[in-house]
Amino acid sequence: MAWVIFFILSVLCIGAVVGMIVTRKPAHGALFLVLAFAALGGIFGLLDAPFAAAAQVLVYAGAIMVLFLFAIMMFNLREDEPPSGKRLRAVLASALAVILLAELILAGRRALAGFPGDSALSSGRDIARLGRLLFSDYLYAFEITSLLILAALVGALALAGRKEGE
């Protein structure tokens, strides 16, 4: 049963990403990504990480991609121009990317070689434990992250806050 869900979700995700690559309209691309991230959220759930799944859907799919859509609308990007003759870079990059894929798979297999075996009960389900971890081992990171968000806020305002001509 889990395999079926996994299969559907992954096809959805990959298909959405491919769609984002193929489409020429940026708005469509952004929407495709929303779909992809949502599917990814589901996959996170399959990995016994409900908190991460929730965060993914809420923040990534919900906030970040919306932000992108706002930007697209602001720039009024219409269609991307049809592919010009010079596609050398893209082809080259794709070839290299395939090589990278092979390498990554190889690396992954090596990494997994020393597995104690998938634990039946992952500690991810225990949200309380997660919370405790957050406030003990990862306290510094947590606090600094909040500072980071503040900085990002202020930065964005400072950078793009002013209108032209002022």
């Binding site: 996170f44 990995l47 016994d48 990480a49 908190f51 991460a52 965060a55 993914q56 923040v59 990534y60 906030a63 970040i64 997994l112 597995f115 104690p116 998938d118 634990s119 992952s122 500690s123 991810g124 225990d126 434990r129 997660l130 971890l133 957050l134 081992d137 990862y138 990171a141 992250t145 980071l148 968000i149 900085a151 990002a152």
Partner: peptide
Amino acid sequence: AKGFGRADGQMLVLFVITVAAA
């Protein structure tokens, strides 16, 4: 994280999402 049975991976994911937002 699931494979090794540790929760640290999830912590990192949380932070990555946050940072990605910023």
